[in-house]
């Protein structure tokens, strides 16, 4: 399992021990609550993620995209809403789920909304995430998603600037096999002005993205 080192990402619920009474009590509450979707947007902001109130801009981060072109995160996020996710393609849990829910909604929104929003995936495992592998992995979600790689120390500097935890390489159990990579579990949404607007923790569902993407596309 990919370690979740982000304090900003909601940690998915873990299994609890036997608690029959609590479970059945909760059934009553759940029934009373009804509703197929349990998610409610943040009341103050109207979005499902956590609004970023401090002035945090997109970091200057020199990357190379999957086509081999230079990709500066600050310049590339300017003038367009950009969702940035720091993860890796071998991630067993957070990355594929986060990307699947986002891409499912991204494919479903109006083309005008898609045109206004760019998704950038920055690899936190540049050794294993070759450009070809990164491109193929992202194409499995959406062909327009941008993949980029860079030096880990620079990526860690950018993460610190965004107040996200840095990348941690964690050896696998018993020291055999590939290591796990600890990385932030949040997707950060930057406005067209390059300022971070919302952090989307792990646990965002397709329906949540479907409501938030058009809202983000209206950002000025």
């Amino acid at each position: 399992m990919s370690p979740r080192v982000s304090g900003h990402g909601r940690t998915a619920a873990r299994s609890r021990g036997p608690s029959c009474r609590a479970a059945w009590g909760a059934v009553g509450l759940a029934l009373a609550w009804g509703g197929a979707s349990c998610e409610v947007p943040n009341e103050a902001s109207g979005v499902h993620g956590t609004p970023v109130h401090r002035e945090v801009g997109a970091p200057r981060l020199a990357l190379i995209d999957t086509e081999g072109r230079a990709f500066d995160l600050r310049e590339e996020t300017h003038g367009r809403v950009t969702l940035v996710f720091f993860g890796y393609t071998h991630c067993p849990d957070i990355c594929p789920v986060h990307m699947a829910t986002l891409s499912a909604a991204y494919s479903d929104v109006e083309p005008e909304v898609r045109d206004r929003i760019r998704v950038v995936f920055v690899s936190t495992d540049p050794e294993r995430d070759t450009p070809q592998r990164l491109r193929a992995w992202l194409d499995g979600y959406h062909r327009s998603f941008v993949g980029a790689r860079g030096a880990l120390d620079e990526i860690n500097g950018a993460l610190a600037g965004l107040q996200l935890p840095g990348v941690a390489v964690i050896p696998s159990e018993h020291g055999e096999g590939a290591p796990n990579i600890g990385h932030p579990s949040a997707i950060v949404a930057f406005g067209p002005d390059g300022r971070a607007r919302v952090r989307y923790p792990f646990g965002m569902r397709r329906a949540d993205w479907l409501r938030d993407l058009p809202r983000l596309a209206r950002e000025r």
Binding site: R16, P18, A26, V27
Partner: peptide, 9 residues
Amino acid sequence: EVLMRSQMG
């Protein structure tokens, strides 16, 4: 969602 999160549920 509630029941499947616990063994007894």
